[in-house]
Design a protein around this nucleic acid. Sequence first.
DNA 1: CCCCTGACTAGAA
DNA 2: TTTCTAGCCAGGG
Length: 96
Amino acid sequence: HGRSDQMGDELESAVAEVLLGLEPGDVMTYGEVALEAGFPGRARAVGRILSTSGGIYPWWRVVNAAGRLVPGHEEEQARRLADEGVELRNGRVRRR
DNA sequence: CCCCTGACTAGAA
DNA sequence: TTTCTAGCCAGGG
């Protein structure tokens, strides 16, 4: 039965919940979002969701595991993060 | 079904 | 520290 079809929706809603829970100043990696959503190892799925769901989520609060900003949106993302007080280091999110 | 692509990653060079 | 490589998982042609 169409379990795999339903899986995509579950993942999407779970990821959405995590993303919508992010507050100003918060920053998570794709992998962390996936993990917290209950889908470890689905970092790519998180990226796809963010890239295909036209701005309904706070996309600027998500960066890759290396702290790199979103390809093609570095400038806007850097500005938004700065507005929230997130420190950047050489174009990368500083993580301790 | 095959093939390519990507807002990913961890690990090797 | 930066670049490459090999896995990875879905989507879409």
